[in-house]
Design a protein around this nucleic acid. Structure first.
Lengths: 364, 364
DNA sequence: GCTGGCACTCTCTATCTTCGAGTGCTAATT
DNA sequence: AATTAGCACTCGAAGATAGAGAGTGCCAGC
């Protein structure tokens, strides 16, 4: 059943007002809004209807209405206006992102921080790297007891490890090993590194004194490094929200979010700029059933997808937050995939127009 | 003026009881304790004395006593019993630490998590690396447009960077550059890398097409990388404490702790195993004036000192927490400096006896 | 179908009362 | 002189009561 245009306008007014004030909204408040030109009595009729339809509810008989998750959903899907970021906001984001080109690890933490401070909600930043292969081995001979393993990955990242030995090796041996590993260990996935493979390489190079297994061990470590990382920042923001004045409630949520496992089990949106909204009971996790989660995904270069998001009460400024997240995610994509290939362009994020076009998925 | 033995026993009883219950302690409660064999009236006399001396205070006239920071200080310095960790506890710590030998970055975050869960307080983990120099350059030629810079630091860590060029270079050039950098850029601190030095190197190698500045730039980045990192975990623990039931108070503290700058400005204890306690107003930061901070320092191998700690109300179980922090810090030291040199031993933390000897500094 | 009016409901706040834990003081005891 | 029992007193915490105000549903009239 389609609901009338007027009902929609009224619902939108209720949600807007409640998002702003966190107080149940009464018929009078709505009647006073511009664009609504009927009396409060009429509004009351409509509100009663909307309640019957499941979009609103009353905390108690003689209070105003607050939106139900279903109400928020309709709002997010159809009613809310596209939020335009101000020029200051976009510039602040651009500036912050440009400043923070460092190792991915720090970038992650920093962008989380940025998101938190920009939205005033607890923010999370995740990466879920795709599997990759080793494209090249180098062994750098330092001295008789020391060498460095340098591994170039198909994702164009470099990993290294310094190895000290309790015995000495010759430079020739190191070179021989490098050649061997380049021949046998490149281009293969982590599950192809079998004990069989290792022992066959070990046989090919005699007198390795266990070096093969050290290097192979590093290769496995690098390949299997499911370095999905998760950062949670701005948790203090939660405490300012009226719905989390109850320390126990705040504690429950933060306790849940504090566990990386939980964060990593969040659903990963697909395409860059896609902003997804999960409202209250739409969340799978029991602990999130009366909170909302907004997630935006970005392309982190080497086959990796990243995720930024915020967590808050169902009463969130969805339009605003979604726009901001979308913009940040786009910026990250540009930064990281720009850095992927060319040495130029890296480190400069050109001002995107804030189209905020991120399709607001329906989250179910 | 030295206070009597009995006063000390009574003060200790008050602190112990208050740490446990978070409620003001009355004379009757103390009189019932074993080891105290005087009547509550006598206790009241003594309590009044202790209050006059500044060790105790009353929230209001008709309530029990709670310790002042001065009272806690005396308790920590002289009265509290050495807390013995149970075998389970030490084994849990050992097991957790042994499991977490990964990159330092993750280790840091993980040990923070461990500390938080072990103590039930918000935990912090910091590193403050010492300055170091570059001991060796290697440039790995990949193809005409690509090479890897590998830098071995005096601290025995390795840093690398993959460089893509918009033009092509010959392998010979790369080798020449490596030799040049090894000749001029090794063994010097970051402030010795002057533009003068760079341009003189640039002149020595003709036709470098800007490569020198790329490599020098990386060298500077690596040297100046004041990679002091700070992790804060277990913030949710704060909310369970009765003294932080007030969301505003919790918010203020968490807001302060959320800023890395603030964490990094904490005083750094010197020697490994040294546990330092800062009680209430002993903290320099205004925001910590009614909280306590317990810090333990460890030797993180390559010239670096690490720090773990917890933050909580002045009412903390100092003995217990100090013992735990000391034990973890010792474990970290063993792990990290063990890993520094030999390839063996790395990854096995032998069971330390929990002497908990960490001198409890007087924090002023 | 919309509106003004009206009785009703229910929470929120302020004020008051009561209760009890804990104190300080005093007088008696060791 | 130190300790103890007894007692009046203080003050916050918790519960009870009353009033105010916001908002509702419904009805009669336009």
């Amino acid at each position: 059943m389609e609901i009338s245009e007027r009902k929609k306008r009224i619902l939108a007014a209720v949600v807007d007002s409640y998002i702003e004030s966190a107080e149940p909204v009464g018929s009078k408040t709505i009647a006073e809004k511009p664009g609504i030109d009927v009396s409060s009595a009429t509004i009351r009729h409509e509100l009663a209807e909307l309640e019957r339809l499941g979009y609103l509810e009353q905390p108690h008989t003689s209070a105003g209405r607050i939106p139900t998750p279903q109400g928020y959903r309709l709002y997010v899907n159809e009613l809310m206006e596209q939020h335009k970021l101000t020029l200051e906001e976009t510039e602040q984001i651009n500036r912050s992102l440009n400043m923070k080109i460092q190792q991915l690890d720090h970038l992650m933490a920093d962008v989380g921080q940025l998101t938190a401070s920009l939205t005033s909600y607890p923010a999370l930043a995740l990466t879920a790297p795709a599997k990759c292969t080793i494209s090249r081995f180098d062994l750098i001979y330092i001295d008789a007891n020391t060498f460095i393993i340098v591994v170039l990955l198909s994702s164009n990242t470099v990993k290294n490890k310094l190895v000290h030995l309790p015995f000495s090796v010759e430079q020739g041996m190191i070179q021989k090993l490098a050649a061997l590993f380049n021949a046998h260990f490149t281009g293969i996935a982590d599950d192809e590194v079998t004990p069989l493979l290792i022992s066959s390489v070990e046989r090919a190079a005699l007198d390795t004194m266990g070096l093969v297994s050290i290097i192979a061990g590093f290769a496995i470590e690098v390949l299997s490094e499911t370095a999905s990382s998760a950062y949670l920042t701005g948790t203090q923001n939660l405490l300012q929200l009226p719905e989390f004045r109850d320390p126990d409630k705040a504690h429950r949520l933060l306790n849940y979010l504090g566990d990386k496992e939980h964060l990593l089990s969040l659903p990963l949106p697909q395409s860059t700029g896609d902003v997804q909204v999960f409202i209250g009971p739409e969340n799978v996790a029991e602990e999130l059933k009366d909170s909302s989660v907004i997630l935006a995904s970005y392309d982190a270069g080497d086959n990796t997808r990243g995720l930024i998001g915020v967590v808050g009460p169902t009463r969130m400024d969805y339009a605003n937050i979604a726009a901001k997240l979308g913009y940040i995610a786009n910026g990250m994509s540009q930064l990281l995939s720009a850095g992927e290939k060319p040495p130029e362009g890296w480190g400069k994020l050109t001002l995107m127009q804030s189209n905020g076009e991120g399709s607001i998925g329906n989250g179910r």
